[in-house]
Design a protein around this nucleic acid. Sequence first.
DNA 1: TTTATTTGGTTTATAACATAAACTAGTTTA
DNA 2: TAAACTAGTTTATGTTATAAACCAAATAAA
Lengths: 94, 94
Amino acid sequence: MFKELDPLLHSELRLSIISLLISVESADFSYIKEKTGASSGNISVQIEKLRVAGYIKVEKGYRGKIPQTMCSISQEGIVAFEKYVDALKSYIMP
Amino acid sequence: MFKELDPLLHSELRLSIISLLISVESADFSYIKEKTGASSGNISVQIEKLRVAGYIKVEKGYRGKIPQTMCSISQEGIVAFEKYVDALKSYIMP
DNA sequence: TTTATTTGGTTTATAACATAAACTAGTTTA
DNA sequence: TAAACTAGTTTATGTTATAAACCAAATAAA
């Protein structure tokens, strides 16, 4: 009947982040913050969860002297997103 | 960028219930339980939330001597579901 | 007949979660 | 040199989803 929704992606902010990362090669923390409008703390926590799950890769470096956190989606993340979208369709398709 | 997801519908079980009710005239508690596979307690709680929100109508009656709770979606619920689906598309559409 | 068992739920307890507030560390600007 | 800004992390809190425990009545079994 209804396919299970990956709880890691069934969260507004994490879904936003994955959705962003799907369409770009990589994105830094500020970009994610700007596009989602969420608070730094919330983004930080959700990025960490996605990282631990293996859905994204996180690289901490510098842009000049300023620290910069770069995120990119992993193959696992792409597969999970596609599966999530497919599962969603079992709920919203007429 | 991303449209807000109605938190009342952005829940696996509540979304299942609304999704079921969208396609039928009405459904009783047992039918919902069978189709969703969720526990009675969980269904009871989520039905009550949808009812309080005005998304569904709940009528308690009897089938013979056995109590029966009938649920049907309201106009408000239909609109909310359509809006939710539309918002979702801002996350999952390529 | 009285004791399980089943049906159809509700109430309550709990663990997980999302979120923002508070905080850290370093940099730039006035 | 002090204030303000960038770039986050950690922690605290309220909310939520969920299942366990419970209740009441009907039916089946012993």
